[in-house]
């Protein structure tokens, strides 16, 4: 199994970051090349910009540990686990690590490249204080 990890430091509190990362309906707002995400219980189906739909199973959504994990449940993947961890750096900033474990091995690189771009976009929106992912997170907070 191949493993790829990307990480980024974001100048926002872990709670602010987790409000986006921990909401599985928002991923297409911060993952470049994803155009839609539909969540039903612990199932999520994402659509990519090339028209590929990928069913996923949400494995972990732990707001205490701030860990989100999901598995792509598609014949193109023999095994997959995506893990997003949000760490509190105790200085008002956060470290976000996005890991991809996959078989076939090249899929880890293909997906891992996308996760790197996703972290950059996540940071951009959070530090700017605006963007579709934040709007989605705030709407969710308003609902609750």
């Amino acid at each position: 199994m191949a493993s790829v990890r990307r990480e980024i430091r974001i100048n926002c509190s872990p709670d602010e970051v987790w409000a986006v990362v921990g909401n599985p309906t928002l991923i297409h707002y911060w993952f470049p090349g994803m155009t839609n995400a539909v969540v039903d219980g612990n199932s999520r189906v994402i659509t990519t910009a090339t028209g590929i739909t990928l069913p996923e199973v949400i494995v972990t959504n732990d707001s205490v540990a701030r860990r989100f994990q999901y598995r792509i449940d598609s014949p193109i993947m023999q095994e997959h686990l995506g893990t997003i961890d949000v760490f509190d750096l105790h200085d008002g900033t956060s470290l976000v690590a996005y890991s991809t474990n996959a078989v076939p091995d090249p899929m880890a690189l293909i997906i891992g490249g996308g996760t790197g771009a996703a972290l950059v976009e996540l940071k951009r929106q959070l530090e700017l204080g605006e963007g579709p992912a934040l709007a989605g997170a705030q709407a969710r907070l308003g609902e609750s």
């Binding site: 990519t48 090339t50 293909i110």
Partner: peptide
């Protein structure tokens, strides 16, 4: 730009 691009992120692939 990379060829393997399921997310359609690269100009030359689109």
């Amino acid at each position: 730009e990379p060829f393997l691009d399921p997310f359609g992120r690269f100009v030359e692939n689109t």
